[in-house]
Design a protein around this nucleic acid. Structure first.
Lengths: 248, 248
DNA sequence: TTTAGTGGCGAACGCCGTTCGTGTCAAGTA
DNA sequence: TACTTGACACGAACGGCGTTCGCCACTAAA
């Protein structure tokens, strides 16, 4: 009551707790919470994303968040959909469905990877957000318009999504593990952790595991992007083979 | 020091706490802990699997477990490998590699599903346990002996594993969600939860989402096993197309 | 000026994983 | 037989979590 703008020049008496520094305390809102959550997710990872942490960032207590967000799970869903909002979809062209499907998959993968840990929140969710519906309409429509029976197109969409998110999820686990171990450099982490595994594999009895022991390097090599593309093409080729009108 | 066997006839003074009832207190061991953990995982799900819960089941405090298990993560890895121990592998026959690969995938999937939630622990792990190495040797050897270059076989193995575990993981999330919502019957859950989603989808503006709104039933139908097989065949066909010696 | 209503949030509840220091007892040694 | 030693067991506590309850300060209406 006493702290008014005009009094700013005079220091407040020290016994009066500065309850609210003159600033009008910017309003909480779901949007603000989401943005803050996303920032934490990007810079500190999913494990650091607690309601308390978000509240702290907003200079308040955790209880305040529950007026705008039902619970943590809902917050994660909102975060996921926010991230999905970053994917850009081209004009649909059923004649080039395979090409477009591939580009879409790579785009989603890219976006998920760009937000390190969000995939870990994603897999735990059944997508109902606006942006994920939009993406669903794109893919599903593409396949249907290319001639695939709707039921089959639905399954194909589901499998493709599972693959994309699953891969991103796995990658984010490595990322998390790396951070937990205190590494900041990918190369360092790789050499430390993966090195251990390689040593272990090499120490296995060769008569019992001839192939594994002989090709440790190939097995253990992370090579993320290449692996993702390989599996993606596996799936796309499979879909193509099942597409009616294809030589069949 | 005072409680001796000979004094058993005399009731202990009430102020002396009966520290240890005569029973020799069966020994803790890593194996016992794993079995207990697995039982909890099967009957109550991953969310109920805490160190405290395991300890309670063993009539002790959580601290006691740490003598046999480094931490919770290690316990989960051990649980996962224990479950993998249940998969049965046939004699390897490279001539029938595709058939065997398919059977293997279905077997692993079956075992993971049988232990409801274990897949949720699995995806968070880089497999180093004895049983997972054994499985790896089987698949990898099969592909290599069928003529696939080792590097490619390694990637194929990786992608296939990701798919299997990813699908089981997703299924276990539904399972968990179902339990959390208090349903015990699959049908009930399906109709309640999935029904909501269908209502939501149907309420979307048709001009913006023509395909999704028209085929809600196909999109939302869970149909787990069928979907898994569809994606599996997608992948296997893709691998076959890349197998040297195939017409190619 | 009083009142009613509402959003913000401090404090607390009951969980969690993990650690520390002590208690207990069996086996080995004198 | 008496003592020492070492390994195991574990109560208690630490610092974190998600979530709820009920009060408080404030605004808008009367």
């Amino acid at each position: 009551m006493v702290d008014r703008k005009g009094a700013e020049g005079v220091p407040a008496p020290p016994w009066r707790k500065t309850r609210k520094p003159a600033q009008p305390k910017r309003q909480l809102s779901q949007d603000l919470i989401i943005e803050t959550g996303l920032r934490i997710l990007d810079t500190e990872g999913l494990d650091a994303l607690s309601m308390r942490r978000v509240a702290q960032e907003l200079d308040t207590g955790p209880a305040s968040l529950y007026a705008h967000v039902a619970n943590k799970e809902e917050l994660l869903e909102l975060l996921y959909d926010r991230v999905l909002g970053e994917i850009r979809l081209p004009e649909r062209d059923p004649a080039r469905w395979k090409e477009q499907l591939r580009a879409y998959a790579l785009e989603v993968h890219r976006v998920l990877m760009a937000h390190g840990d969000v995939a870990r929140a994603a897999l735990a969710t059944i997508p109902t957000g606006e942006n994920s519906v939009r993406a669903g309409e794109f893919i599903f429509g593409l396949l249907v318009e290319a001639g695939m029976p709707p039921r089959e197109a639905a399954i194909a969409l589901d499998r493709l999504s599972l693959y994309i998110v699953g891969d991103a999820y796995e990658a984010s686990l490595h990322y998390t593990r790396m951070r937990a171990a205190g590494f900041t450099d990918k190369r360092e982490y790789f050499e430390s952790w993966v090195g251990q595994i390689m040593t272990y594999y090499r120490a296995l009895p060769p008569e019992q595991f001839p192939h594994v022991t002989k090709h440790v390097d190939d097995l253990v090599d992370a090579g993320g992007e290449e692996r993702f593309r390989y599996g993606l093409d596996l799936i796309l080729d499979g879909i193509e083979a099942r597409m009616p009108g294809k030589r069949a």
